[in-house]
Design a protein around this nucleic acid. Structure first.
Length: 377
DNA sequence: AGCATTTGACCACG
DNA sequence: CGTGGTCAAATGCT
């Protein structure tokens, strides 16, 4: 039942080579500043760095791809068509039994359905529990759980139309313990239903929704949002993990001057990005968020947006499990804005999901970083 | 009556 | 064994 040694020596060799390349790219990245210090103007330096990052990213992708192939070769079922998530949604009432069966098929974790996953942060005007972050879509709460290290429980939501339309989108809402006005919303799976995003105009205000939309709970599911004066999407932080969109192009030039270390600018480190204060494990690339999910796409269109994509869902046959992709708004101004905006809110500019990135951490010889913000209690 | 939320329990993973 | 994610019965509200 394990992936075992399917890949074998050949794959190991390939991985070794790729890791080597990645390491070289990293070295290049590290030496760039010094080397270019005197000879190159700043723009050129930044450009070189961007290229180096791209190079590193490419290696990272290749490594993950290789790993995926290796896993698939050993795991067996990874023949594509039978998606790992099929069991989940079709279950409906089948619940437990189905889950067991699905596990027997080799799906690593329930959380890893091979669905795209990303995080957005919402900020509410005050810390009132009445307010709720929302994306304008209809969600139904199906659970709540106290999370270790978090002061507030995490709410679990799934699409209201899951049963009727088979929409498998889910989200997790958690109030940040660092800033009570900030909510971390982790989406998983894109909406396949046909619900429309209500515009602020036709939707009641967040506060109103709380009382009018039936019962309201601290982490209510429905409310207007974003452009709402009440609740706003926090500069659109989005961290994506899991299934990536169709081999997105990895362009870095648009935001060449903007790199992950952006976090460093503010003097606070979001998460241990590999501890180097550099790129997250494996390097990263920026690309236009061309594959943003519908919901996010809207977000992107409506607000300055900085997106971080981190893919790496191994064992996700249906989706490409390449290296991580860091995408940002196509406009560099958005990036700049994002950087300058976050400190205003006094909280981490972005957060990386590590759960699916163990491979990366392992790959690049870094200890898998703790899961970010909740750890520092 | 219908729908959404709450809450306890179950299950899988590390 | 601890933690996180999901299910499903119970409950509440419109």
């Amino acid at each position: 039942m394990q992936e075992g040694g399917g890949g074998g020596d050949g794959m190991h060799q390939l991985l070794s080579i790729l890791a080597d390349g990645e390491e070289q790219a990293r070295r290049l990245l590290g030496e760039l500043p010094a080397a270019a210090d005197d000879h190159l103007p700043l723009p050129a330096k930044e450009c070189c760095r961007a290229v180096a990052q791209q190079l590193r990213c490419t290696f990272g992708k290749a490594i993950l791809a290789a790993k995926a192939i290796e896993a698939a070769a050993g795991g067996g079922g990874a023949s594509g068509t039978d998606s790992p998530r099929s069991a989940e949604e079709s279950s409906g009432a089948g619940g437990v039994a189905t889950r067991v069966a699905q596990d027997s098929q080799g799906i690593p974790k329930r959380s890893r359905k091979g669905l795209p996953r990303w995080t957005e942060k919402f900020r509410i005007p005050d810390e009132s529990l009445e307010y709720t972050p929302d994306d304008g879509l209809s969600w139904r709460k199906y659970g709540q759980k106290d999370i270790l290290g978090a002061r507030f429980p995490r709410g679990y939501y799934r699409c209201t139309y899951r049963n009727t339309q088979g929409c498998q989108a889910t989200k997790q809402v958690q109030r940040s313990d660092a800033d009570l006005a900030v909510f971390d919303v982790t989406y998983q799976g894109e909406h396949t239903c046909h619900q429309q995003k209500p515009r602020p105009a036709d939707a009641p205000a967040a506060g109103a929704a709380a009382r009018d939309g039936g019962h309201h709970n601290p982490l209510a599911a429905t409310a207007p949002i974003m452009q709402e004066p009440d609740v706003q999407l926090l500069a659109g932080l989005r961290v994506e993990t899991g299934g990536m969109a169709p081999s997105s192009s990895f362009h870095g030039h648009d935001v060449s001057g903007f790199s992950f270390p952006c976090a460093s600018s503010a003097g606070f480190l979001p998460v241990e990005l590999g501890g180097q204060g550099q790129l997250p494990a494996g390097g990263s690339c920026f690309s236009p968020a061309s594959f943003a999910s519908p919901a996010v796409a809207t977000t992107l269109a409506s607000s300055d947006y900085f997106a971080v994509t981190l893919a790496g869902t191994r064992g996700a046959p249906g989706t490409s499990e390449l290296g991580e992709v860091v995408s940002a708004a196509t406009s560099s101004s958005a990036a700049a804005l994002a950087v300058s905006d976050y400190p205003v809110y006094g909280y981490h500019p972005y957060q990386l999901h590590q759960d699916d990135d163990d491979d990366l951490d392992t790959l690049f010889g870094r200890p898998s970083s703790s899961h970010g913000q909740h750890g520092d209690a």
